[in-house]
């Protein structure tokens, strides 16, 4: 789920505007990748070890999105993300650590979109991840549990808070080939696995008061050092869960040399099939004015080999994350050949 590259504070963390010339948020810069490990197709992921951080790689994230429903049938969306960026190779105690952590949390209702952002230095305990027992945290936000299958998720912003329990109802899914996910025709890649089968219960607190919610969640784990080609400036990323129990992850990377699309089809039993480049297709149906930009908020998504032809529309058109690196991220409804819900992320729209 490479969408989440948002993070990359890297060298431009506090800069007012991302450097478009080097890809979104500097993700396409090669110099910064020097000295860092690069993903290899020969790597075999191992758990619980790989739930923890990989400081040899430049960037990494723990990314959870959830489609939830209240007692009155109202749909809600929740996002909890922890990004890790290394300014230099290695780890150290105290302020000397070159690791930087960034957290994003959001709660979306049909009318409102609330979000919050946190930044932290590594090495002092303000943020971090342990693999076993699993704990990921930044400030007071937490995703933690005895193991990866049962987690408690909390976050608090100025106008929202949530406290949710996650229980996995299916296996981990390795994206790409054995968790090696290719991102461009030049061979940029990342290590990538997901847990799309969380059953979620808990409380979502909004300015109007607490709401009991339940639904399903999708967690993505990805790490890399140079995930984008130099000409790639943004992406549209879809994680869709169908009523049939199947799931589809698909993305479109927009570049000067053309778009690169890829994805994974996940059967109800959790077995995953990587999609060939170009098999997954997504085309904008409607642009909307969001935060002063034109953003495609309705899409037609097709996957001919599965007989899939659906329309993806947002729960809330203004699901704008006005963070340091701004992007659109929010819950979506799926109608057409397959019905369901999911999350959509779009970056790099100026």
């Amino acid at each position: 789920m490479l969408a989440r590259l948002v993070v990359i504070l890297a060298l431009a963390l506090l800069a007012a505007r991302p450097a478009g010339a080097q890809g979104f948020a500097g993700l396409g810069s090669t110099a910064a990748a020097e000295g860092f490990a690069t993903p290899s197709p020969d790597t075999r992921l191992s758990f619980p070890r790989d739930h923890g951080p990989h400081p040899d790689f430049r960037i990494e994230w723990w990314y959870l999105t959830a489609n939830l429903t209240g007692p009155d049938g109202t749909d809600y969306g929740v996002q909890w993300t922890l990004f890790r960026t290394a300014l230099a190779l290695g780890e150290a105690e105290g302020w000397a650590s070159p690791q930087i952590w960034m957290g994003h949390a959001a709660a979306t209702t049909p009318q409102h979109h609330y979000f919050a952002e946190r930044l932290a230095r590594g090495g002092i305990g303000q943020a971090g991840v342990h693999s076993d027992p699993f704990e990921a945290w930044i400030d007071g936000w937490q995703m933690a549990g005895e193991d990866f299958d049962s987690l408690r998720l909390t976050a608090r912003g100025a106008e929202f808070a949530y406290d949710l329990t996650l229980s996995a109802e299916g296996p981990l899914v390795l994206q790409g080939v054995n968790g090696y996910s290719v991102k461009s025709a030049d061979g940029q890649a990342s290590h990538y696995y997901s847990q799309p089968h969380y059953r979620i219960e808990g409380t979502l607190t909004l300015p109007s008061g607490p709401v009991a919610v339940s639904g399903q969640g999708w967690l993505d784990r990805e790490w890399s050092s140079q995930p984008l080609a130099a000409d790639q400036t943004g992406w549209d990323w879809f994680s869709l869960s169908f009523d049939s129990g199947a799931h589809l992850m698909g993305f479109r990377l927009r570049g000067a040399r053309g778009d690169f699309t890829s994805g994974t089809w996940i059967a109800p039993d959790g077995s995953a099939t990587p999609l060939a480049p170009g098999a997954f297709q997504a085309a904008p149906l409607e642009l909307a004015d969001v935060a002063g930009r034109q953003i495609p908020i309705r899409w037609r998504v097709t996957l001919p080999e599965r007989g899939l032809d659906v329309e993806v529309s947002p729960l809330n058109r203004q699901s704008w994350m006005g963070t340091r690196f701004p992007y659109w991220e929010g819950p979506v409804r799926v109608t057409g050949s397959h019905a369901g819900r999911g999350y959509l992320e779009m970056t790099g729209y100026e």
Binding site: A12, L13, A15, A88, A96, I100
Partner: peptide
């Protein structure tokens, strides 16, 4: 200079 922050926080 956009590299200022990285320089500030590293070695």
């Amino acid at each position: 200079d956009q590299a200022t922050l990285a320089q500030m926080l590293t070695q």
